[in-house]
Design a protein around this nucleic acid. Structure first.
Lengths: 301, 301
DNA sequence: ACGATCATTTAGTGGCACTACATCGTCCCT
DNA sequence: AGGGACGATGTAGTGCCACTAAATGATCGT
């Protein structure tokens, strides 16, 4: 008893003759007759009976044909299940972000998608070394990742949308001698004690570039990944640090000074598997992320 | 996208590896892999993805697998639909009867099956010539038919249960000269005017046998099929008639006298297609008919 | 009684799901 | 590191099954 045989039985119930079923299903009456015989072989009571020269369903056949309708309904639902999943505007979308991107984007995303009828976002923070960001797209629909301007681009296995190209400024206490300048040069800061990120994290290479531009070896006083912690350490006089211009809430005791002479900028990209954008909900989230990025960029300057 | 492919997808979601699915479905992993590929060909978004060396479902795959469960459920219901129909104790059972059998059996049947949980009987009267009774089993689950003792048996295409072997007595007005006798002989009644049934109906042959036993030609005064009408005609002096001993409500102005010397008995049989007894409800009705027949037979003498 | 319509049977064919075998990628172990 | 186990996939070949074509049988209309 398979789907086709049930289909044939149901059509026979509705059309009332083997020939009509054959025409409806675009096969010969012989094929219909044979399939009905096979179906009957599996059932101990007659499903059909002759009525004159036509073939009609018995009561048992009608009972089975009724069940066949449910099978076809379920099958039709299955055939549309993927489209529905894909087109569902209020599905769940998982978004991962490194810390500072999360701090900047998550509130905007939550506010933009608060209403009903939109995607339900599942947010998570994930701070991983640069090369691990693409892997996260296995687990999350959208991954906010950062990389430096000159760093190797993301592998082709993931698609990306650049949300921000954010300058990295030098953060220092408001009473620092360099705080009087409007911008700082590599030579100004090369000898300062740095508060840097751990090895493998994106911002480190910029510090090395700054030191190299001044012909020095950088003095890495501390290794702190989390910018909020870095800010407190800088404010307490632990050293200077590179900090993002827009995605960090300004610390009252710190000032940010633009660097000149060295390209200090990071990309904040949304990474995702291309096929996941088949889902309306995912595309909606990506659109909202781009809008949020514009908001962040305009709020800064 | 057919049932098997959906089954494979669902199993992959539950078992988590192609090999496990292959073992569960008793085929080679290659077959599973190929079927998954075919299923994927019909769907624009990935249903599966590699996780290490194993294959797991994507979210879209899980959505489809969920729909697949519904398909399998519907299919399982279909596979049991016939048994359920067959085993349902409270299904509809159609019963046809010729007039006098209906008058005798229908009330008993209705009373016996009045409670809930039992079959719902659909009763109909059908008075047809002898040879048409078997044909009625196409339309009714059970057909109460009558035939004379010596008449040819029912064809093999129908099954039968003999409910009653009912004597046919001679009905006459209570003030008839023969009413004094305890039984009557063919010679007694051969010259009487008969009220007989129409041609082709069962009882006629007995009258002809009675006349033949007395060496006469029967005098057929009237042709009335319906026994209630016959009874009134006899009471009004229109002639004598053969009437069933048990299945007719006694007429106050008539007496019934047994015939001697001639086998005057009719069978009341329940006819049915053998396969219809697969239904519990039909068997219940047949059982109740047999019980009703015992009641009728015992109430008579 | 005839042709028309409908269902079924038979023989034959093409497509498809499967197996067997080989290959490739991943994990684990020492 | 590197080899062995495990898991998935690709390829060639095979057997089954749904189908077509044509003939036969049954029933209807006129």
């Amino acid at each position: 008893m398979d789907e086709r045989q049930l289909r044939i039985l149901r059509e026979l119930g509705e059309l009332g003759s083997v020939t009509a079923v054959a025409e409806a299903l675009l096969v010969t009456p012989s094929a219909i007759s044979q399939q009905l015989r096979l179906l009957q072989r599996a059932i101990p009571v007659p499903l059909t009976e002759r009525q004159g020269r036509r073939l009609v369903l018995t009561d048992a056949g009608q009972a089975l044909a009724g069940a066949a309708v449910e099978v076809e309904t379920a099958l039709a639902r299955a055939r549309h299940a993927v489209e529905e999943f894909v087109g569902q505007p209020d599905g769940e979308v998982s978004v991962a972000a490194f810390h500072s991107a999360g701090a900047a984007f998550f509130p905007l995303l939550l506010r933009a998608l608060a209403g009903p009828g939109g995607p339900v976002v599942r947010l998570a923070d994930e701070d991983v070394p640069q090369e691990d960001f693409p892997r996260l797209t296995r687990e999350y629909d959208v991954v906010l990742a950062h990389r430096l301007d000159h760093a190797p681009p993301w592998p082709d296995t993931v698609a990306r949308t650049t949300l921000l190209r954010e300058p990295l400024d030098v953060a220092m206490p408001a009473d620092h001698p360099l705080a009087a300048e409007s911008r700082v040069t590599p030579r100004d800061v090369a000898d300062q004690p740095w508060i840097a990120v751990h090895d493998g994290f994106p911002v480190l290479a910029v510090i090395e570039a700054i030191a190299a531009a001044a012909g020095r070896r950088p003095h890495l006083a501390h290794r702190i990944n989390e910018f909020a912690v870095v800010a407190e350490a800088v404010a307490a006089g632990g050293g200077i640090a590179l900090m993002p211009r827009w995605t960090m809430r300004p610390h009252p005791a710190l000032v940010l000074k633009p660097l000149s002479g060295v390209q200090a900028r990071r990309h904040i990209d949304a990474l995702y598997r291309p096929e996941r954008t088949a889902r309306t909900a995912v595309r909606t989230v990506l659109t909202e992320l781009r809008r949020a990025a514009r908001g962040i960029q305009n709020a800064g300057p």
